[in-house]
Amino acid sequence: MGDTNGVTPRDWTAHPPLIHPDYKSTVKRGPTKPLVPIRQSLSELTGPAYGHDALAPLDNDLTKNGAKNGDPLGERIVVTGRVLDELGRPQPNALIEIWQANAAGRYIHEADQHNAPIDPNFFGGGRAVTDGEGRYTFYTIKPGAYPWPNHANAWRPNHIHLSLFGPAFASRLVTQMYFPGDPLLALDPIFLGTPEGARNRLVSDFSIDVTEEGFALGYVFDIVLRGPKETPMEAGR
């Protein structure tokens, strides 16, 4: 049955609460009763497995995968990082799906009616699978900020949505990556819904080393997922 040592528990000092009234949609959508503890079984310790065969050639290049007759407008960026577990072990073959607004802050989603232009050469969706060292890379356009109806003059900070599959179903994570120095972070109830000590883990780092000269600014975003608990042997090292 393989490693049934279990997966580390969800760290509730890292994750936002289910109801955070400043983010108004949580009030009627977040469960109110305590979560029921569960003894982990194969159901939680297994999970969907995707490999590099799940990818099409341009899936990780959002500057090209939606192009119709030219390049998308905006600031070209490269986003890279590693997917790790809490023990720092790289997570190879982790599927990452991303989606984001275009440079003007407009999603291709038909429900987005923000009065900003659609970019005919930008779709905004992509995916990647981590390599043997847990590393992924996306090329994209820096997403724009956009208004939303949560409160008066509410604006979402620049962000990229990420969805990840790790080593087990219990590792599942959907999150958002933000950009350093964004003044909207201090005003955003979604970002601020995250426990204070954990928020900086959602903010990518600008890196001149990752920046590709004459081509794209570089950002680094490492992601830590729940993984197998350490074995007694690892604990004793």
Binding site: T8, R10, D11, A14, H15, P16, Y23, L84, D85, E86, L87, G88, E97, I98, W99, A101, Y107, I108, H109, A111, D112, F123, G124, G125, H161, S163, L173, V174, T175, Q176, I190, F191, T194, P195, A198, R199, R201, L202, I223, V224, L225, R226, E230, A235
Partner: peptide, 23 residues
Amino acid sequence: MSDLKQTPSQTVGPYFAYGLTAR
């Protein structure tokens, strides 16, 4: 013991459809 801390979850938001359930 753990060296790294879990990346926090954030909402999937209202606009996931074209990224996660496009077809």
